[in-house]
């Protein structure tokens, strides 16, 4: 009797603690259900309807929207733009961040004012997208923008160039802004990654007479793989949702050169006939693309890792 009683008491005490845990978790769960799960489910539901404009009733049409959107030149063009701009931004971003991270973590180089440089590299990330877009819009303005005036002054150009009427020009500017905004944060993450590698590995390699390049390619890079994987996936997720900079810079122009997937989603829902169904379908397709490519990247990188460890 005594024993069971005390057991009961203890059990009750434990149960009480877990109750508190659940209570503390409730706000998150409610927030999640209301503001994340419900919208996601509603978006997916919408993508199977033909809701648009003033209509209020959901009218289910099956997979029609998905079949239609995969043959929709405008959406496919938006996807292509997204990938082009993301590629143009991500590859240089990773390279520059890697080089910088290598320098800043190299004991032999010892850069002065390391903290200041890190802050400077990170600074563009703090400026809001709206300010950046306005800044670049007037920098590259036509015909009297500062960049045009400088280029003409130094005889690079004979007459002003209209950057925002040139498809490659505008794409490069958007990609550059993205690059410039994010290389600082990538750099800091890579620095942390490199500093997390056991220094004795570097020392051992040095004693064995390995060159800097050998150390970098054979020790730093392979051991940075988990961090690179993280950067790649977060950048892909962010890149596929690219919206603010191209939208605020030119609204997607010239001739839809920087109309990204998200801008397409926005335009479908908030301009024209307000085709919520197309907007929802495009969102779901974007979600699927992000999921598939994230899984692919994860799988490929991890396969490599298994090989290395073997």
């Amino acid at each position: 009797m005594e024993l069971t009683k005390s057991k009961k008491k203890r059990k009750g005490g434990i149960a009480n603690y877990s109750k508190y845990g659940q209570m503390f978790a409730i706000p998150f769960i409610i927030g999640f259900l209301l503001f994340q799960l419900y919208p996601i489910i509603y978006t997916i539901t919408l993508s199977f309807t033909d809701l648009a404009g003033w209509e209020t009733e959901l009218n289910f049409v099956g997979f029609k929207n998905y079949i239609h959107i995969l043959h929709n030149d405008h959406f496919l063009r938006a996807l292509k733009n997204t990938w082009i701009i993301w590629g143009m931004n991500f590859i240089p971003q990773l390279l520059v961040a890697l080089i910088l991270a290598k320098w800043f973590t190299d004991n032999a180089v010892k850069i002065k004012g390391e903290g200041m440089f890190k802050a400077i590299f990170y600074l563009p990330n703090i400026i809001t997208a709206a300010s950046l877009a306005i800044l670049f819009n007037s920098l590259f303005g036509f015909p009297h923008g500062p960049i045009n005036q400088i280029l003409i002054h130094f005889d690079v150009l004979q007459e002003p160039f209209e950057f925002f009427r040139s498809k490659p020009g505008t794409r490069i500017i958007v990609a550059f802004i993205q690059f410039w905004r994010w290389y600082g944060s990538t750099f800091i993450i890579l620095c942390a990654g490199i500093m997390g590698i056991n220094p004795s590995l570097f020392e051992a390699a040095k004693i064995d007479g390995a060159s800097d390049w050998k150390i970098f390619t054979n020790i730093t890079l392979p051991l940075l793989k988990p961090i690179t994987l993280y950067i790649l996936i977060t950048s892909l997720v962010g890149g596929m949702q690219m919206f603010d900079i191209p939208f605020l810079l030119t609204g997607g122009g010239p001739d839809y050169a920087v109309e990204t997937g998200m801008i397409y989603v926005y335009n479908q829902a908030f301009t024209g006939n307000r085709n919520f169904f197309m907007s929802a379908t495009a969102s779901v397709v974007l979600l699927l693309i992000i999921m598939v490519f994230s899984a692919l990247i994860y799988y490929v990188m991890n396969k490599d890792k298994r090989k290395v460890s073997r």
Binding site: L46, A129, G238, Q241, D244, M262, F270
Partner: peptide, 19 residues
């Protein structure tokens, strides 16, 4: 920023529809 903006957009879109 990108994330918040797009999330915000989704919310606005959805709530307007819920309405």
């Amino acid at each position: 920023m990108k994330r918040t903006l797009s999330l915000l957009l989704v919310f606005v879109m959805l709530f307007s529809l819920v309405g």
